[in-house]
Simulated assay, not measured.
Amino acid sequence: MEDNPTARKSRRRWELLESASEVALLVGCFLVVAGLFFEDWVAVFRVSGEVAVIVGVTIEGLADGGIFLAAGKLRMIQDAELEKMRLQTAEAKRRTAQAELDLEELRAKVLWRHIDAAKFLAALQASTAMPTNTEIVYLRDDPESWNLANEVFTLLHKADWPVTLPTPIVPNEKWRAFSSFPTVLGAGGNPFGGIALITNEEIKMPTWEDKTPFGFLVKAFLEGLGGQVSMNRIIPELHDSLAAGAVRVVVGPRMDPANGPWRAKLQ
Rank of each mutant, 00 (worst) to 15 (best):
M1P: 12
D3R: 06
N4D: 14
N4W: 02
A7E: 14
R11Q: 13
R13P: 00
E18D: 09
A20R: 11
E22C: 02
E22H: 05
E22P: 00
V23N: 11
L25K: 08
L26V: 13
V27R: 04
G28P: 03
C29R: 09
C29H: 09
C29V: 10
F30C: 14
L31R: 02
V32S: 04
V33D: 01
A34D: 07
A34G: 01
G35A: 04
L36Y: 05
L36P: 01
F38D: 11
W41C: 07
V44W: 11
V47N: 13
S48W: 12
E50W: 03
V51P: 00
V55W: 08
T58S: 15
G61E: 04
G61R: 02
I67L: 02
L69Q: 00
L69R: 00
A71Y: 07
A71R: 15
K73N: 13
L74K: 05
R75H: 11
M76D: 15
Q78G: 02
D79H: 11
E81D: 13
E81L: 04
E83Q: 10
E83A: 10
M85E: 13
R86W: 01
R86M: 02
Q88T: 06
K93G: 00
K93L: 12
T96L: 15
L101C: 06
D102I: 00
L103A: 15
E105P: 00
L111M: 13
W112H: 13
I115R: 06
A118H: 05
A118M: 08
T128F: 03
P131D: 05
T134R: 03
T134Q: 05
E135Q: 08
Y138W: 00
L139I: 05
P143N: 02
E144I: 00
S145P: 01
W146V: 01
L148K: 02
E151Y: 04
E151D: 15
T154E: 14
K158N: 11
W161G: 10
W161N: 07
W161I: 15
V163P: 06
T164H: 02
T164G: 08
L165Q: 09
P166A: 03
T167C: 01
T167N: 07
P171K: 10
N172R: 03
A177R: 12
F178Y: 14
S179D: 12
S179R: 12
S179Q: 09
P182L: 05
P182I: 06
T183A: 13
T183H: 13
L185H: 07
L185W: 07
G188I: 10
P191N: 09
G193K: 03
I195V: 14
I195D: 13
I195N: 12
I198F: 10
T199M: 01
N200H: 09
E202F: 09
E202M: 11
I203V: 14
K204W: 03
M205K: 11
P213C: 14
G215T: 14
F216R: 15
L217H: 05
K219Y: 04
A220V: 11
F221L: 02
L222P: 03
L222E: 14
G224W: 09
G227T: 10
Q228L: 04
V229L: 11
I234W: 11
L238N: 06
H239T: 03
H239F: 07
S241R: 06
G252C: 01
G252P: 03
G252I: 01
P253S: 09
M255E: 12
P257Y: 06
P257K: 11
N259S: 08
G260K: 14
R263S: 15
R263W: 03
A264L: 05
K265G: 04
K265M: 11
K265E: 15
L266P: 01
